[in-house]
């Protein structure tokens, strides 16, 4: 059971960026990206012994892919340098490990959107309205630009080397070290609720909207010891309600970071709202919140935000 949950978390982290491994996008974006990548390693602060180790990892994987060793060495040096260059944009963190995890999480809205509108259950039996189609188009556009920006994460090699690469990287930040020890030990956190709270605390402390978003996924997992929100904070036993207001509170906090990326009209939260009711299409989280929340929910969201902001780092 515990192992299963660890695997789920690891897969979540890895799986979301594997979600962009779609050949049509890859081919298109690789072509475009070749002309845009510039060499700039100056702001990388990574332990180079570990980089070499990571390179060896990717080399051995390339060798398994029936590439010659010499070709693999050359191509993997370039491949790894390119990866580091793209991560050096540091949109989330100066730590390449955290940056890679965060960018991977950003692809969460893209992974399953490659079969047309039928990949969304809401559109299995009905067509999107023009307003919903506009959001679908914007999502597609956002995903395309992500693939262009991070073409190396779309490389086929990442599919087989991704998890090992993360394991062998040496994070430089406290958040990176915290996540790294979970991945490298292949163990579920002792206390899932605490893990969720730690992600929230790190997200707030390190201005990382993706860590906050990941904590919403764990909201419903904290059953081994205690719920992610201790019972005395909200009281009541209505778990769907508690989960809903928890998600709203965390999403609201995440709006502060990365220019509100996880609150934008194309964010996974607002997509759901738009596909449920086209009235919400084009709104961001705060606009939706003004229209959608009852006084009691608003009071509980406020209570939770205060609680989350008071959380201490591990």
């Amino acid at each position: 059971m515990r192992t299963k949950i660890l695997i789920i978390i690891l897969l979540m982290a890895l799986g979301v960026y594997l979600g962009l491994n779609w050949s049509d996008i890859r081919n298109q974006s690789n072509e475009q990206n070749k002309t845009t990548v510039e060499t700039n390693n100056t702001n990388l602060n990574t332990d180079y012994d570990h980089i070499n180790k990571v390179k060896k990892t990717t080399e051995s994987i390339a060798a398994n892919d029936q590439t010659t060793t010499e070709e693999a060495l050359v191509s993997n040096d370039e491949w790894f340098d390119q990866l580091m260059q793209q991560l050096s944009l540091a949109r989330y963190s100066e730590d390449p490990f955290v940056e890679m995890m965060s960018v991977g999480l950003e692809f969460e809205t893209c992974g399953n959107n490659r079969m047309g509108n039928k990949s969304f259950w809401r559109f299995q039996d009905q067509s999107p309205t023009p307003a919903q189609q506009e959001i679908l188009n914007q999502m597609q556009s956002h995903c395309d630009s992500l693939v262009q920006q991070y073409s190396i994460l779309d490389d086929k090699k990442m599919e087989t080397a991704g998890l090992e690469l993360l394991t062998n990287m040496m994070p430089t930040s406290k958040l990176g070290k915290y996540l790294h020890q979970l991945i490298s030990k292949r163990q579920q956190p002792e206390d899932m609720a605490q893990f969720g709270r730690n992600l929230i605390a790190f997200g707030i402390k390190e201005d990382n909207a993706q860590m906050l978003k990941m904590s919403t996924w764990i909201t419903g997992m904290s059953h081994n010891s205690e719920p992610i929100v201790p019972a005395h904070i909200l009281k009541g036993q209505n778990q769907p309600y508690i989960n809903a207001v928890t998600q709203m509170a965390i999403t609201s906090l995440a709006c502060e970071y990365q220019n509100g990326l996880t609150c934008a009209p194309t964010s996974s939260f607002m997509q759901t709202k738009c596909f449920d009711d086209e009235h919400f299409c084009g709104m961001d989280f705060s606009q939706w919140y003004e229209l959608a929340v009852t006084p009691g929910i608003a009071a509980d969201v406020q209570l939770l935000k205060q609680y989350f902001q008071s959380l201490k780092l591990p």
């Binding site: 909200l234 009281k235 009541g236 036993q237 209505n238 309600y241 009852t294 006084p295 009691g296 929910i297 009071a299 509980d300």
Partner: peptide
Amino acid sequence: DYFLNQNQWQDVQM
């Protein structure tokens, strides 16, 4: 008394 918290109960009453 058990299932809904105070704020949710107030919303329900509304």
